[in-house]
Each structure stands twice: as structure tokens, then as C-alpha cells.
Write a protein that binds this DNA or RNA. Structure first.
Lengths: 384, 384
DNA sequence: ATGAAAGCGCTAACAT
DNA sequence: ATGTTAGCGCTTTCAT
């Protein structure tokens, strides 16, 4: 009764009960070698009897490994990031580590604060969607980390996992072409965002390959929101134009907003206007018409990020930048204007998008691990 | 150079640099009393100089408080639960504690596993949406905890935070009545779920008050999914009926599925069929027509749960069961069949739904109205 | 007001 | 194969 208090049982309780020493008990429980099967069993039984559960805090102190990972994303409420979080969670759980999740709301100050919290919690590493531009904070972050998301691309010498925007844009553009929309208008995000430049560059390459003058593409900017897309679409419709209007929006929310603007203008999608989105959020499925879109593999990004982080933690030096391929989800927001056979090019997010990999049911698993450094080619000139 | 290794600075480094003892440094840093302002300043400066950051693992060991909370929800990918998580996160961060987030997928085994992980991580308490029915696991959970969600209601003697289903159902029903749908059909979840019984009970009470025989209400069951709703709606339409069909679905996903079934049957919502949902997921906003629904305050539930957990941790004995009020979001899925307003059928954003706030374009800004982080829009004219 | 020392629970190095 | 001991970084008595 000396220790019958409400205290949680420690390894000492187990040792006493099993009639062995502290360290023997520890050895038995950690599955170390140099232990008789007999004693091991004895200890395990004792542990179960007293309801022993390892104290990770203590283990962490001793071993320097807390068994926790940090995840800092803009907003867990955003379906894409929730997807990422889920992937990370599952992968982490598979290895018996826990995830500390934070939302930064794209606020550098909040980010700094969360990173400090992570450091103080002594997480073994962190997965971060960087919002701050200054490298300083990150340089002295003092913890293994991996970047995720398109904004990670700014930092060339940091391991990262993100969508392959180039592949995604080509996938979308190819699909548009196959449906008879060779020169779609573009609804893009704010000029300040890197993703915008990436998007534009891919469009530019596509144009060059197909002998299209990029300057003929109409471009509108807006915030990455429904309202932003709606306003942009409105402006697009105000421009002089004839016939069918085709739009490639850089974000599903904007695409949904564009859809609204079309309806408000008394037009019909896809009869008068075709819209292609980018992200793959669930809401696109329930819009009417259903939003055809290029979907990012959020879940896989989360998983791979954790794996990359494990490498980073174990000092596997091969730091890598991984770009996960996106896939096309075909729904009803694109009119088929192709004169020829509409099923000529594409089935279901298949492999005919300029990459050579094998296609599974969902993703084209090409090794899109190009090391081609991003030399800030500006391709927006003349379009904006 | 004795300790110039890559080791993170400890309180000893701070003490040495400040020329004081370990304990003095600690006192200065924890803001304890009995310290000269002069030395305090000296220590703080030294801490900043060496880049000292408190090791929460060590603090946790010493004090028995890890500064971490656990959150176990079915799926972070589900918009409602993401909302809850976000609320919990923000509230926790406000008090300087971190959140370990787990998804159980409604799997009792996964739940058990996550709870063990939480215990081993020595979280100070946990917020749980219970999936397992057996109280055993929870009884010997051995940690302060608070339940969330409707399934929490099974456990009468546990502190919990959830939606006020009774109020929500009445809100929806009153709205239906005001629009001329006195006796809607019901699309409910599986009979096994407690939420179903709660829902039905509230409907029953409503009927009794209005002298309606509950037996005249058509009821269909289904899984809480789009497909479940679609099948249920199909069956509903197969039943003999005349004129307009009104439906109250127990879940937005089902409502969206029902909407699909209506379209597939060559009918029109809201002309031929009116649909009211329950949850308030973002997708409802982009459906066509927009889904009128009763929204649960996920974010607030998360916040309150953390606050309740703090009480629980501090042994404030007043364990309570909190039911948060829901609000109506009026969009376009309900026809107005009321005598007063015979031809206004859709898109009438308004405030006539039993709550007293001011109406903006389309939302009633009841007191607990939140910024809708992800959607973050006002879409006044969106659906027309 | 400050310092010395004990100890939280665990693991690993060093005995035996 | 097992026991003994030191120490991870911190807070908190107990002295001074």
C-alpha cells in the first residue's frame, strides 16, 4: 500500500512485481536481446497485471526522441490540407509516432509561434507549409524538417513534397485541347504567389509546343476564393469575345465562383462557358454541373512528407524534392467542342499526358522527380 | 568549447552565462517571485543570447503536466470534424498547449489504439468522439476527458459538448412549416445510431405540439452518405404520392444524394421536391440549387470542449453536458408553398427562420456566427 | 534572494 | 543474463 496512490505504474512497479531489476524489466519490454524467454514472459505478464504503459516523456528525455512529429499547415478546415493531414497522420501512426497539428492561416507570425511550440515540445521533426519568406527562421529552426505545398518550391535546398504543377497544368491543358478548347482563358491567383508563376510557365511551355501565341490567352487575377473567381469571371465575360468561352481556373474555389458568375450572367455552363478547375475539392462534385478538375494528391503528399521526414531525421543525406503527379477528374463542366471523335485522346485520367509512367487506377506513377532547377523564368509578360 | 556541440542549450547554459545557479535561472524564467529584477533581467538576456527554449519534455516529467491535449475524431477529412478540430486547436493554442490529433474512422479498435498512444504521450487530457459502446475502456482510461458529438450522449455521467439536436430539428421543422411544408418526409441514418433516435424524438415532439399524427410522415433509412441519400430518395419517390414532396434529411451528404436522385428522376428541386439538410457542410453551398440546411457549430464545439477539458483537468467537479445551438442556412432547396407567399419559390435569402440576428445576403448572423474560414465568402446572389 | 540537492521515469554503459 | 549506476533537463524543497 506504500504506492497504492493513484499514481500511474512505472517500470519499477513492473520490476518489483516480476522480481527483477529495473533494467531487466526495461530490456524485456523494449524487446532487447540478452534476455531469457522465461524472464521476458514474467515481465510482460507483470506489466499487463499492473497496467503498465511506457512514459513517452521519460523515454524522450533519455533517448532524445520524443516520438512526435509536427505538422504546420495553413488551415485544417481547407479540404486539401485536411487531406494532407490525414495522409500524414496515417503514415505517422503506422510507425507509432504522433502528430502535433497546427494551422497557420498563412500568417507568418502564427507560423513562427507554432514552430516554437514544436521545438519546445521537442518533436523529432516537422512538416511545414512555409508561409514566411525569410529563410532565417527556418535556417535556425534547429530541427529536421520537410516542406510541403507549392510554396515550398522557393527553397531549392530543402527537402520538399508537393504537387507537380507543371504536369498538372499540362494534363489540364491537354484535356482542354482534346475537347476542342485550344486557347483557354486563365483565372489565376494573386501575382505575389509563386504558384501563379509556376502555373503560367507551364502554360507557356504548352503554348510554345503547340505553336500558340501565349499572348492570345486572356488572363484575370483574383484571390484564391469563390468571390475572387466570381469577379474574375465577370471581368472575363465583359471582355469582347465571340462564341464559347473556355476557362482554366488555378483553384477549385475560383472555378466554383466562376460558375456562379456564369449563371448570374444568364449563361449556361457548359453550353456557353466551359470551366476547368484545379485542386479536387469535394464541393466540385456537388456543383451543378459537376466541376471537371485537376486533382492534387493531398493524401499522398502527406504520406510522402512523413516518409521524407523520417529520412531527414535519420540523416539520410539524400535530400529530395518530390513532385507528386495530379490526376484529372472529369465531370460535367466542359463542353465537347472537338470536331472529331471526342474519345480520341483520353479515358479516365489516363497516361496520355506527356509522362511515361505506368498508370494505376488513380495516379500516373511517373517518376516526376526532375532535378531541373527552377530558374525564375517569367512567362507572364504580355498576358497580364 | 566543452559544450559547443550541436546540443540545444539547456537551463544550465543559461545559468552559466548569467553567472547564477541553475535554480535561480529557473526561477527567473518561470516568473517566480523572490527574485531581484536585476538578476531576472540578466537571466532573460542570457537565455535570449544562447537561444534557450524550455524543454517541455523535462517540464512535463517534473511537473506531471505535458502541456498536450489529445483529440480523437472520426475523420479529419470530414468538414464537420475539421471544423471541430480547428476550434479545439485555436482554443488550445490560446492557452499555450498543443494538440495531438487522431482519426478513428469509426473503428473501435483504432480508437483504442489512439487512446493508448495518448496515454503514453502523457497528454493532460483528451477530447473524444466515442465510437466504442463499451464503457470499460473509457472507465479505466485514466485521464481527464470530455466527449464530443452526438454519440457522446449515451454516456450520461461524462462531461460532453455536442449539438443541440432537439433545437436543430425544431428549427428545421419550424422553417419547413413556415414555407408550407407541415409534414415532411424524413431521410434518416441507420437504426443503430443514437443520433437517429434523438432526431426522431424531436420530430415526434414537434408533431404532438402541432397536432400532427407522426405516423403520416414517410421515413426512409440509409447510410450517412451521398449514396445512402440517393437510394432513400429514390425509394421515397417510388411511394405513392401527390403534389410537392418535402424532405428533411438527417445529414447534408444524404441531402445532396437526395438532390441527385431528384434530378435523375427527371424532377426539379425545388419545384417538385423540397430538401432540407442537416450539418452545414461547404458542399451544400455549391450544389444546385444551394442546399438549405441546419448547420452545426463545429468550431464552437471544439472550443468549448477544450474549455470543458481544462475544467476537468483542474478537477472542477461541475461536470456538465453542453448542447450548442444550431442555425439555419437558407439557400435555394426549399419551395415556398406558404399561402402568404405563393410564388416566391427560391433564392429568397432571409431571416424568417426563428433566429433573431441580422440577415446579411444569406446568412443569419446569430451570435455564434463564425467566419467561414475556408469558404470565406459571401455569396448573396450566388444561386440565381 | 540565492544555492545545493533530490527526483520525475526511463535507458544505456558498465559491472558482475 | 542480470544488477547497479548515472544522467537526460527541469522544478522544487530545504538550507543559507
Amino acid at each position: 500500500m506504500s504506492k497504492s496512490r493513484n499514481r500511474r505504474p512505472t517500470i519499477i512497479d513492473v520490476a518489483e512485481r516480476a522480481g527483477v531489476s529495473k533494467s531487466t524489466a526495461a530490456r524485456a519490454l523494449t524487446g532487447s536481446s540478452n534476455i531469457t524467454e522465461e524472464t521476458r514472459e514474467k515481465v510482460v505478464k507483470a506489466a499487463a497485471a499492473v497496467g503498465y504503459e511506457r512514459n513517452h516523456l521519460a523515454v524522450g528525455m533519455r533517448s532524445g526522441r520524443s516520438g512526435m512529429l509536427g505538422l504546420v499547415i495553413p488551415d485544417i478546415t481547407n479540404p486539401f490540407w485536411a487531406d494532407v493531414a490525414r495522409g500524414a497522420q496515417d503514415r505517422a501512426a503506422k510507425s507509432g509516432v504522433s502528430l502535433l497539428v497546427f494551422s497557420s492561416d498563412w500568417d507568418p507570425e502564427a507560423e513562427t509561434q507554432h514552430l516554437r511550440a514544436l521545438r519546445q515540445a521537442r518533436v523529432d521533426g516537422a512538416i511545414i507549409n512555409p508561409v514566411a519568406d525569410n529563410f532565417d527562421d527556418l535556417d535556425r529552426f534547429g530541427l529536421p524538417f520537410v516542406f510541403i505545398g507549392s510554396s515550398a518550391e522557393r527553397f531549392a535546398d530543402v527537402s520538399s513534397v508537393g504537387s507537380d504543377i507543371a504536369q498538372a497544368v499540362r494534363l489540364g491543358l491537354d484535356h482542354l485541347v482534346s475537347k476542342g478548347h485550344p486557347a483557354p482563358s486563365l483565372i489565376l491567383g494573386p501575382k505575389s504567389r509563386l504558384a501563379r508563376a509556376r502555373f503560367l510557365r507551364a502554360v507557356h511551355e504548352h503554348c510554345v509546343e503547340r505553336d500558340i501565341d501565349p499572348a492570345i490567352l486572356a488572363v484575370e487575377d483574383g484571390e484564391y476564393t469563390v468571390e475572387g473567381g466570381r469577379v474574375a469571371m465577370r471581368r472575363l465575360l465583359e471582355r469582347p469575345h465571340v462564341g464559347h468561352v473556355s476557362v482554366f481556373a488555378a483553384n477549385d474555389m475560383m472555378a466554383l465562383g466562376a460558375m456562379m458568375a456564369v449563371r448570374e450572367a444568364g449563361l449556361d455552363c457548359p453550353r456557353d462557358v466551359s470551366i476547368l478547375g484545379f485542386d479536387g475539392i469535394p464541393s466540385g462534385e456537388f456543383a451543378w454541373p459537376g466541376l471537371t478538375t485537376v486533382a492534387k494528391p493531398g493524401r499522398d503528399i502527406g504520406e510522402r512528407a512523413v516518409e521524407g521526414l523520417f529520412d531527414e531525421i535519420e540523416h539520410k543525406p539524400e535530400h529530395r524534392r518530390i513532385f507528386m503527379p495530379c490526376r484529372l477528374i472529369e465531370r460535367g463542366s466542359l463542353a465537347d467542342l472537338s470536331a472529331q471523335n471526342p474519345n480520341a485522346c483520353r479515358g479516365q485520367g489516363g497516361s496520355d499526358h506527356g509522362c511515361q509512367g505506368q498508370a494505376t487506377d488513380r495516379y500516373c506513377l511517373c517518376e516526376w522527380e526532375r532535378s531541373r532547377a527552377w530558374i525564375g523564368i517569367r512567362c507572364g509578360r504580355g498576358n497580364d
